[in-house]
Design a protein around this nucleic acid. Structure first.
Length: 943
RNA sequence: GCGGGUAUGGCGGAAUUGGCAGACGCGCUAGACUUAGGAUCUAGUGUCAUUGACGUGCAGGUUCAACUCCUGUUACCCGCACCA
């Protein structure tokens, strides 16, 4: 027997020499396209996480081939991007050199694992033959009006003088140098991805993505259904249009907020008397870093526009207008109607700026009854700072401990009502009103009065100033029913049981806004409604009739910022001519190549380093022939990866990006695996790109991917993320050297649920090596038979079925486990047949391809496994004649019995009743019933 | 805050979808074979106590039967984050 290394090299060479995994279009065979995200070939080399996902897809691909499919399983490189650029600037080489080296490393590492990629289709996104077509497709976007230029803020590091992606500037700090990131405005090419929002949403129905991935996409697209409502301005004949999903709260609007960038500010600057203040605020907001805008969200700053007032369309009440950076110009209309009683952000802003809070929805509590009497009432909590106690009434058996409560008189003010009730019931006169909580619609039944009530109740909070008291002043018959008691907070929690009163206490420190559903109040024609959607519809219909609103759908999804100010990306194939404007580079002149220079320092202006390379920039206008300049920005990393799956179908085509015939044969990707971190951006970009190509007739499927699954991360031994700084990074090469590629593959499949993260354990890896060693030793006990051993036949058939199902359903861990179980059974036999062994080796082959081919070859069991087929399950051999089932008494297992397949229910019951331990537990008791689930369990219920 | 996920022995993880919880592997214990063992083989291994009881984050519920279904709750992880 050769050693592991020799075995691996031998079979890797065999597969290469025989082009075993090269996919050839073949109409007679059913195709299957497996795709795993191609890596960014970083200098760090392959990670054990790559091994996990590549092996998983390899297992499925190898198995599918054994099942007779024509499998396309390609690999390539996503090699544009800043690490290569940084490296190149530092070492004064062209990034393509660094990329070339890294690819070589990655490729040799992957090849050592024996992954069955079709290397004949390999390419890199940085190959001019590839990015020529990326540029070609960009021009299609441009031609169809899908690309446009717009001013956009970018994350800018003033020290590195470079634009940063959001990932490289997380926390508001430059990933590389640690200085604060600022926003810099820059003209950028944009792709109209938001036009595709609805199509991208609907297209998901035509996919079988994992639910968590679908959900991520749905949330990212962020569809919201609402309405645009017009608010007239008082000072000019103009309207302020806002977007809202809560038209039902329109009666609760107490102010308006517009984004600092809102055009009305400049448009009506003549009317705004505090324009200086407004401009200062706007500038401050602009200077805020991404970090400040997203992290310091609590602080609702803003400035009132003096001299500009809006009118509430349903109440005609005048509303102040503020500017604040909590309203974004790029969503909705850049203006909102603020309803502080029902929105936390509006509430925070209102409190900070002393604006009125008008509740229009009451939370509903208690239990509804028929024939309810309606009342307005209050509950007042009085707190004494001096003693740290709360004022309560102890109603004893009549209602337990409560706070002060009472009915509000007609036209009586809420706070006055509270003060009056406190005085009447407890005698205290010197109290200060502190705050009002969100009102409640409470339902209850008063047994003493035999009456059901629905009360609109305001919850009030007072503080006691002094013990001034006029004494309790009540009728004699009320007087003795309760006693006035001051109690501690703990005592309140212990003894105040009434839902409403308890709520008044528990919520006393929380914000007085309510964003849930409830009963409409203060809203004229909506009053009394309790269904949110009904209220919204009624309001929108009312406004639509008066032409004051229209239904509107909004999406969170934004257009795609398609330019980067970098050297190492696909040049954007456009030329600017003073006469003709933006002119596309003619198709026959593609690709626009990156210049072969090794020096390109970043610019001070935020332009791409390409801007300093004159030979690149200066050119002639393709239209008029005059002097012109090239666009110097390059495409983002996401560009090349947005269509690479199409190129694999026809990677060497120099006439088209992919031919129609190849597209028709390979169709779409049947199974796409990638990280959860790409479940939104990459996956959405690629779907958008493909949908666009479909809409202009260049591809045949609207949705590019059928199934999408995501693997879990591999963590370090301690359960933390692997990282250089923690020093817990495992190099796959070392593991292959120490344990062999098959052991590593087997271990990574066995490590746990494929979709969940898992911690690395070298002992676990060693366990898989032991398993493979046992498989090898099994060869020593072969007999001459070419049939399954009769005592193993059922187990073998069960295992075929199990492994088959598991491999198709990403359950690699249990597939390995069931093979281990079968091996344990083999080991208990004195000898095993050649067929037993060969079947086992084929089942194990997708996971451990080298050693299984070798054993199959050494013992001359048959054709090379890669040229063989998957064993068939003999369904008849799956059914066991005799089975052990459990017998329970009152749900507790007391015995197991052996039952035969043809035993009748009576026979089984009898067997169950006669088991020793069962007799012990049912003896002398009455048998209530017996539950018998065929082939599974018997449960005897006794009393 | 919103969305998604997870919780099972000393550890990684199983459980045919409501039917014997802890498969399989690691680790550990004892023994065998060995000059030797970080090799291999055999036996054992959820917890507690003597027949038995308890046990799937926590508290309830449904059921003959719950890791699995329902209600509530806690902790942790991930994604998005002022989206009106």
């Amino acid at each position: 027997m050769r050693n592991t290394k020799e075995i691996e090299e031998r079979w890797q060479k065999y597969w290469d020499d025989n082009r075993t995994f090269c996919a050839v279009e073949d109409e007679s065979k059913k195709k299957f396209y497996y795709l795993v995200e191609f890596p960014y070939p970083s200098g760090a080399g392959l990670h054990v996480g790559h091994v996990r996902s590549y092996t998983a897809l390899d297992v499925m691909a190898r198995k599918k081939r054994l099942c007779g499919y024509n499998v396309l399983f390609p690999m390539g490189w996503d090699a544009f991007g800043s690490p290569a650029e940084q490296y190149a600037i530092k070492n004064h080489v062209h990034p393509k050199e660094a990329v070339k080296r890294n690819i070589e490393t990655f490729k040799s590492q992957i090849k050592r694992l024996g992954i069955s990629f079709d290397w004949s289709r390999e390419f890199s996104t940085t190959d001019p033959e590839y990015y020529k077509w990326t540029q070609w497709q960009f021009l299609k976007f441009f031609e169809h009006g899908m690309a446009y230029k717009a001013k956009k803020n970018i994350n800018w590091c003033p020290k590195c003088k470079t634009g940063l992606s959001n990932e490289d500037s997380s926390g508001g700090v430059c990933e590389r140098c640690g200085s604060s990131v600022v926003q810099k405005e820059k003209e950028q090419w944009m792709l109209r991805m938001s036009d595709y929002s609805e199509q991208l949403l609907e297209g998901l129905d035509d996919t079988e993505f994992q639910d968590r991935i679908k959900t991520a996409q749905v949330n990212w697209i962020g569809k919201s259904v609402g309405a645009e409502v017009k608010f007239k301005l008082k000072e000019v004949d103009e309207e302020l249009v806002v977007y809202t999903t809560r038209a039902d709260t329109l009666f609760g609007v107490t102010f308006m907020v517009i984004a600092p960038e809102h055009p009305y500010i400049d448009l009506y600057s003549g009317l705004i008397s505090n324009m200086n203040e407004v401009i200062d605020y706007r500038e401050a907001a602009r200077r805020k870093t991404e970090f400040e805008r997203t992290q310091l969200v609590k602080d609702k700053t803003g400035v009132k526009l003096e001299g500009l007032t809006a009118i509430n369309p349903v109440t005609n009440v005048e509303l102040p207008i503020y500017i604040s950076d909590y309203v974004m110009m790029n969503y909705g209309t850049g203006a909102i109607m603020a309803v502080p009683a029902h929105d936390e952000r509006d509430y925070d802003f209102a409190i900070r700026h002393g604006i009125e809070v008008v509740p229009v929805i009451e939370q509903i509590t208690g239990e509804k009854h028929d024939n309810e009497k309606e009342k307005k009432s209050i509950v007042a909590v009085v707190y004494d700072k001096a003693t740290d106690k709360y004022l309560t009434l102890n109603w004893k058996k009549l209602g337990g401990r409560l706070f002060i409560g009472g009915t509000r008189r007609k036209d009586e003010d809420i706070v006055s009502c509270g003060i009056r009730e406190i005085k009447e019931e407890t005698g205290y006169t010197d109290v200060t009103f502190v705050r009002k909580l969100a009102p409640i619609n409470h339902h209850y039944y008063a047994y003493n009065k035999n009456q059901a009530y629905s009360i609109d109740c305001d919850l009030l909070y007072f503080e006691l100033n002094s013990n001034d008291s006029i004494g309790v002043n009540l009728d004699d018959d009320e007087k003795d029913k309760f006693t006035v008691e001051w109690v501690s907070s703990d005592e309140v929690l212990n003894s105040v049981k009434d839902e409403l009163h308890r709520m008044a206490f528990l919520n006393k420190d929380s914000k007085a806004f309510y964003s849930g559903e409830g009963k409409m109040i203060n809203s004229e024609f909506l009053n009394g409604l309790t269904d949110k959607n009904e209220s919204i519809d009624k309001m929108i219909n009312y406004l639509e009739e008066k032409n004051l609103a229209k239904k509107k759908v909004n999406y969170r999804l934004q257009d795609w910022v398609f330019t980067r100010q970098r050297f190492w990306g696909e040049p954007i194939p456009l030329i600017y001519c003073d006469t003709c404007g933006w002119v596309p580079v003619p198709y026959e002149d593609l690709p626009v190549l990156l210049p072969d220079v090794t020096e390109y320092e970043p610019t001070d202006t935020g332009e791409s380093p390409l801007a300093k390379i004159e030979s690149f920039v200066n050119c002639k206008c393709p239209k008029c022939g005059r002097d012109a300049k090239r666009e110097t920005d390059t495409m983002p990393n996401w560009a090349g990866s947005s269509w690479y799956f199409l190129r694999y179908m026809d990677p060497h085509n120099d006439k088209e990006f992919v031919s129609k015939e190849k597209l028709k044969y390979w169709g779409r990707v049947d199974w796409y695996n990638g990280g959860m971190e790409h479940a939104t951006r990459h996956l959405l970009y690629a779907r958008f790109w493909n949908q666009f190509l479909y809409n202009i007739g260049l591809v045949v499927n609207k949705e590019p991917f059928k199934v999408r699954v995501a693997h879990g991360m591999i963590l370090g031994e301690g359960g933390e993320k692997m990282s250089k700084s923690k020093g817990n990074v495992i190099n796959p090469d070392d593991m292959v050297d120490l344990y062999g590629a098959d052991s590593l593959r087997c271990y990574e499949m066995f490590i746990g649920d494929y979709e969940k993260e898992a911690s690395w354990s070298e002992q676990g890896l060693n366990g898989c090596r032991r398993f493979l060693d046992k498989v090898i030793r099994l060869g020593e006990k072969l007999n001459d038979s070419d049939q399954y051993s009769s005592i193993l036949e059922i187990d073998i058939n069960k295992t075929i079925k199990k492994v088959e199902e598991d491999m198709d359903n990403l359950k690699f861990n249990t597939a390995v486990s069931s093979l281990m179980i079968l091996l344990n059974k083999f080991e208990k036999c004195a000898s095993i047949s050649r067929k037993d062994y060969r079947t086992f080796l084929i089942l194990l082959n997708p996971i451990a391809p080298h050693v299984t081919e070798e054993l199959n070859d050494v013992y001359e069991l048959g054709d090379a496994i890669c040229n063989s087929s998957w064993p068939e399950v003999n369904l008849e051999k799956l059914v066991e004649e005799e089975k052990e089932i459990a017998v329970q008494v009152n749900g507790k297992v007391r015995a197991t019995i052996k039952v035969r397949l043809d035993d009748s229910d009576d026979v089984v019951t009898k067997k169950a009743m006669s088991a020793d331990n069962v007799i012990k537990h049912i003896d002398g008791k009455e048998i209530v019933k017996t539950i018998l689930i065929k082939g599974k369990i018997v449960n005897i219920v006794v009393k």
